[in-house]
Design a protein around this nucleic acid. Sequence first.
DNA 1: TCTGGGGTCCTAGGACCC
DNA 2: TCTGGGGTCCTAGGACCC
Length: 421
Amino acid sequence: MFALADVNSFYASCETVFRPDLKGRPVVVLSNNDGCVIARNAEAKSLGVPMGTPWFKMRSEFERHKIVTFSSNYALYADMSARVMTILEEMSPCVEIYSIDEAFIDLHGVSHCQNLETFGQEVRAKVLQWTGLTVGVGIGPTKTLAKLANHAAKKWPQTGGVVDLSIMARQRKLMNLVDVGDVWGIGRRISKKLNDMGIKTALQLADASAPFIRKHFSVVLERTVRELRGESCLALEEFVPTKQQIICSRSFGDRVSDYEQMREAICSHAARAAEKLRGEHQYCRHISAFVKTSPFAVNEAYYGNTAGTKLQTPTQDSRDIVAAATKCLDTIWREGHRFQKCGVMLGDFYSQGVAQLGLFDEYQPRSNSEQLMAVLDGINHSGKGRIWFAGQGIQKSWEMKRQMLSPAYTTRFSDLLRAKL
DNA sequence: TCTGGGGTCCTAGGACCC
DNA sequence: TCTGGGGTCCTAGGACCC
């Protein structure tokens, strides 16, 4: 048996927890660069603010409805997430952190000593008491059914925020009410194709023939069908699998047409990617860089390109990664465009920095690379200051916009809230 | 003027091997 | 004139997730 716990309107709730004065007012949070709406509290949802729409299109409407708008504050959300996950881990033996605001819980042990719905209510109460955030809990014999139960817990408030689908009859009753597109793993494309085939509800999908689904779609959807029937195909993954790739990319605050600025941005993303790579205790061989103009610009030719390179030996040294990324940039850079975004990708990971060399390869290992990188990371994680490569730039005029950023309430001393008695 | 970032998995097709 | 079968590996692209 699985439970899925997720925080209601997570980003928006993190903001309002520290701003009791916003109670009852509509609140939204924007994506990086203040681009799109990515979170809305209940009040904003009931005003019909759609998810994913660009802010500039909504701006005047937001002002009219006095909608409070925040830039993304990931330092705050990551810290609040860690607090929620810690509580879940204290209350149950096996937890899989699925995303910043969701976790699957293995209820194997729990079900022997406690009613599952009661357990769900206790989780809600404790998270609310200790963090001020509200979670919904869905329970089911498979991950997909737990997800579905969670969906129902959020959609119908009369459930009290907990839905238990242990019993088959309840599963079928709920699935009959749920659109097939609301099932976990079914996006817009597959949803449309299923609809065209006459499969409109989750129940119809559950009752579809597995070989038929496999033939017309893929093994992924076949698994979903089996999971909806109560056959568990997806296990709880308690330990985070090692990453296959690392991507660091950002939209620019303003369009970039200048090579020097682009180079700074690529250097910065490469250095960040290298730091993440070391955090994973990995070495990479494949490094690529990409640039793109806005796909939405009219009267402007789109240009986007990627270049990659493969090193002879896996590396985790920022100097190698920055050098490779800028070399890639030089092969795809074109004058005369207004670039919107760039990024660096790392792949082909190894657990150590050695590789089989060819007979005639000449290779000089860097001396003290590991130690130097450890010093670099040590300084940058100390909280006392940062050092970086000159190529990353000083002014960083290309950096993203965050004009409505809230304080780092929980992770910076100077931003701590003060309470007046 | 202004449209996010970071991932995973699967499949098809091409290059190459014997 | 006739031109196999079976396999691996890699990459690009498409789908999905939050």
